[in-house]
Design a protein around this nucleic acid. Structure first.
Length: 605
RNA sequence: GGGGCCGUAGCUCAAUUGGUUAGAGCGUCGGACUGUCGAUCCGAAGGUUGAGGGUUCGAGCCCCUUCGGCCUCGCCA
């Protein structure tokens, strides 16, 4: 076999005269009857190779039989292209290689889609032939960025004295949080492992073991329905440290993130990153991960709304709700039908009961409200509204009247939609933010108990500790989320390292002593054997790479992703298994049980 | 579990109100061609309209069921 000496993206004019060996895939071939040109591709680029019938008649003859995506190796001389024949689109466009020897390493069937048109090809087809899809430079670039991010992280943590330690993939199922993927145990019949939703408890236990600084680039599993930015199997850059406060974790990780942005995008991220309390985020943006690329804050207008004659507003407030809204700059481009159909349906998808609106018009230099709910506002009320939003002519005011949480839930996505559609920010902007001071709990009305906002091991802020007894709803936690352009790219907290506090939290979560022992007994025990104060974070690798590579699709940054039904179209997983395998695991699937039920007395297999 | 969009040649799409033999571009195959670079020119092959059922004289189109993909609400401590 010809051993390659150069890659296909490497050769330049100054290499002229060199004898080289290249190997790769045939990207395209152009047969002129006389000369044959092939663009040879490897992951580094394209190089044009030429077969000349006059100098190499035998090789030329074989070259004419070559087809796209065949794998070949060639030996030849690097030659400068003659005047006007250079290809400025290629890095190697100043030269070509005149082939002297050709080896066909492998033929290839015609690909099911053309690499050049793959961006227009159904994703289904691309996933079924992922090995071809991943040959495309755009896909390779994404995988390369992902590789670079993990290498940067590993190098960064190593230099700071962190150790990368693996934690088990076969773990213990806990009913909290997301649905677990279960793995049956063969050696202990009728029992199951769970794949980790995160290495949370293990990394905390490592702190008890005085590992002090741990990190891991680790796969996590949550058996919930996927989304465009969510996959059942995903990767976290997982970190835990001892003897730290939130500031320590925040500083270390914003520095890492800034380094990643600098190295990969050559973008300078201003440090320290902005911080915002949860309260402020919810008040101004209706969500704990605000997109700060544009302003357009939400405003509570309940005080004005309750004075109006608009029943929708007044009755919502009477029921303890609020009226909250936003002012879309130049939003008058939305027609009445856009607002009352498209935008209203949009907020209703998020549970809003409706969308009130009014347009801001200028008459003789004076602003007034027009259309929609405008008629319900007195001139004085209208004036107050316009002032509150600092509204300008041709703006559009939109309101939702509901319980506060429900109003936020609808307005936050509406704000993002409007920001995008009204082009309130330019692409390529990165607005980082730490959201801090999360509540420790939220009240779960259905279950009549508190739920952890973060997870049950999150520590309360010291000055709020006393509220564990008196006012759990208003305890703030030492949790922090890092948010970028409205996307949560990481989150963590300082943990409870004191068994008593941990027990108290379980009580409020309505987890009984017995349940706590069953589920987390090993962990609670560990806390009693000298657990240091500790905390950590997990950065979402997939989401970071998505933003770094400018894709909205998480499948683009995963080499072998799954579909919305959790299937791998390449391997056709998941699949049925042999009865023998099931028997070894002491398992019977419902299909078999039904057969047995239907044929009583039939001998069981 | 709910809502929405989609499925026609290998790929991307078209096909009038339900009406003749389902078309085009790219790709593929064959041929031509002295320097191309998304080569060009000539020619050819290629279809169970995702699957099953129904309505109809007649279905790619209408109805039902089903499979699959994407987006989304719920879900994701």
């Amino acid at each position: 076999m010809l051993k390659r000496t150069r890659n296909c993206g490497q050769l330049r004019l100054e290499d002229s005269g060199l004898k080289v060996v290249l190997a790769g895939w045939v990207n395209s071939y152009r047969d002129h009857g006389n000369l044959v040109f092939i663009d040879l591709r490897d992951r580094e680029g394209l190089t044009q190779i030429v077969f000349n019938p006059e100098t190499q008649p035998e090789v030329h003859k074989i070259a004419r039989t070559i087809r796209c995506e065949w794998v070949i190796a060639i030996e030849g001389i690097v030659e400068p292209r003659s005047e006007g024949m250079e290809n400025p689109k290629l890095g190697t466009g100043a030269i070509e290689v005149a082939v002297e020897k050709l080896e066909i390493l492998n033929k290839a069937k015609t690909p099911p889609f053309e690499l050049d048109n793959a961006d227009k090809t159904a994703e289904e087809t691309r996933l079924a032939y992922r090995y071809i899809d991943l040959r495309r430079p755009v896909m390779q670039k994404k995988l390369k960025v992902r590789h670079k991010v993990t290498m940067l992280a590993r190098d960064y943590f190593d230099k700071l004295g962190f150790w990368e330690i693996e934690t088990p993939m076969l773990g213990k199922s806990t009913p909290e949080g997301a649905r677990d993927f279960l793995v049956p145990s063969r050696l202990v019949p009728n029992t199951f492992y769970a794949l980790p939703q995160s290495p949370q408890l293990f990394k905390q236990i490592l702190m008890v073991s005085d590992i002090e600084k741990y990190f891991q680039i680790v796969r996590c599993f949550r058996d919930e329905d996927p989304r465009a930015d969510r996959q059942a199997e995903f990767t976290q850059i997982d970190v835990e440290m001892s003897f730290v406060e939130p500031d320590d974790i925040i500083t270390i990780h914003e520095t890492l993130v800034a380094k990643i942005w600098k190295e990969i995008l050559v973008v300078d991220v201003k440090l320290p990153m902005r911080r915002m309390t949860y309260q402020e985020a919810m008040r101004d943006y209706g969500i704990d991960r605000p997109d700060l690329r544009f302003d357009m804050k939400l405003k509570d207008i309940s005080d004005i709304a309750k004075q109006t004659a608009f029943k929708v507003f007044t009755s919502a407030i009477e029921k303890g709700g609020i009226v909250k809204g936003l002012c879309a700059p130049a939003g008058e481009k939305y027609s009445r039908s856009d607002i009352e159909k498209t935008l209203t349906n949009f907020v209703m998808d998020y549970g809003a009961k409706g969308l009130a609106w009014a347009k801001v018009k200028a008459e003789d230099g004076k602003l007034s409200l027009l259309g929609g709910s405008a008629k319900f506002f007195s001139p004085e009320q209208a004036k107050q509204l316009l002032e509150r939003f600092n509204a300008k002519a041709d703006d559009l005011l939109l309101f939702v009247a509901d319980q506060e949480a429900a109003a936020n839930k609808a307005l936050a996505p509406l704000r993002c939609k409007l920001g995008r559609e009204l082009k309130l920010y330019e692409e390529g902007r990165f607005e980082f933010l730490w959201v801090v001071d999360f509540p420790l709990f939220e009240w779960n009305e259905d279950e009549k108990r508190y739920d952890s906002l973060h997870h049950p091991f999150t520590a309360p802020i010291d000055e709020d500790l006393a509220k564990l007894e008196t006012d759990p709803a208003h305890i703030r936690s030492k949790a922090y989320d890092i948010v970028l352009n409205g996307s949560e790219i990481g989150g963590g907290s300082i943990r409870i390292h004191n068994m008593k506090t941990q027990q108290k939290v379980f009580d409020l979560l309505n987890i009984s002593r017995k349940q706590a022992q069953e589920r987390f007994g090993f962990f609670l025990n560990a806390l009693e054997y000298g657990a240091p104060p500790h905390g950590g974070i997990a950065l979402g690798l997939d989401r970071m790479v998505m933003i770094l590579t400018g894709t909205e699709n998480i499948r683009d940054v995963i080499a072998f992703p799954k579909t919305q039904r959790g299937q791998c179209l390449l391997t056709e997983a998941p699949s049925e298994v042999d009865l023998k395998q099931l028997n070894e695991l002491n398992l019977r699937v419902q299909k078999h049980s039904q057969i047995i039920d239907e044929i009583p007395g039939e001998k069981q297999q």
